[in-house]
Design a protein around this nucleic acid. Structure first.
Lengths: 158, 158
DNA sequence: CAAATCCCGAGTGTTTCGCTAGGAAAATAG
DNA sequence: CTATTTTCCTAGCGAAACACTCGGGATTTG
């Protein structure tokens, strides 16, 4: 389990989807605008999220992405695992003969620690994060400044 | 808080030190041998650990590194934070004006999540890890094959 | 003294990060 | 039907980080 800005972008984008889940799909251009990152980079992240069954895409005007499941059924661990390459964190890469033909200390130790970390992040759902005071606050302010989805598709804010 | 193989090397090396803490300092060549990584790379990691007050170095023949504190007083979070660059994890880099002159959702969300993660890893001490069955097992096998420190400095295994 | 070991800085190849570019397919609007 | 909007897909690119190498010190032990 790796942890970098890549996972953060993914989690934040999923929060964005969860906030507008009952209104309609969210276009990547909207997320790119609020997160200040490029659409193409978001596309690559969402390709992974889609392949892992976390979001569903809807093409055409008015389309966008939407959560594939309820916010309470999606954990932070799933999101991070989806966008991370998840290549051999252990040096022995699955083969447990990294030292003297047997498992090295590194292997067992990190498998255990990584497991504990995964369990921790697996216990946090998107629905829970939405209830965090700081998140609710910023979400409300964002909605006030850039209303998305509450009006029908015929209006333009800018 | 970032998490990669770099942090794993550091944690594993610290475990190695903790295992031999009551016998004497551990030379980097020994750690490099068991972990199968280069001495120079370990030196760079230990430079950071030393600057963060986690280990103390002792030069000259018979020297090496030793824990600066008791194993129960050192947490996994400290070790990982010591070796990580810890540059701007937030896009706004401390300045909280990343969106419309105010804090963005990214900022608050990740500060919260990162904090929870840090607290979790801060709750795990080196002393606790030493008690994990898997770690004890491999440690005992390693000690049997490559006894270090239990004999005086006058013997050679190979 | 000489050997062992920590200490330090500069440089190197590979991978990942974040992004750009260019298009193709699908769905809606007119 | 056509034009626009959006997802989808692939390829590549500069910068950063990763893991490492090399070369030289400084300091302590024997």
């Amino acid at each position: 389990m790796r942890l970098s800005t890549k996972g953060r972008y993914a989690v934040t984008a999923m929060i964005d989807l969860a906030l507008h889940n009952d209104v309609g799909p969210v276009a990547l251009t909207d997320i790119a605008d609020t997160q200040k990152i490029s659409v193409s980079y978001l596309e690559q992240l969402f390709a992974r999220l889609r392949k892992n069954g976390l979001v569903t895409g809807m093409r055409g005007p008015g389309g966008g992405y939407r959560l594939a499941r309820a916010a309470d059924e999606i954990t932070v661990a799933e999101i991070i695992a989806a966008v991370d390459e998840q290549i051999d964190m252990t040096r022995c890469a699955g083969k447990q003969d990294c030292q003297d033909g047997e498992k090295c200390l590194t292997h067992e130790l990190w498998v255990d620690l990584s497991r504990q970390l995964y369990d921790f992040l697996h216990g946090i759902t998107l629905g829970q994060v939405l209830q965090w005071p700081a998140v609710k606050q910023v979400a409300e302010r964002q909605e006030a400044r850039h209303p998305r989805g509450f009006q029908s598709k015929s209006e333009n804010v800018a």
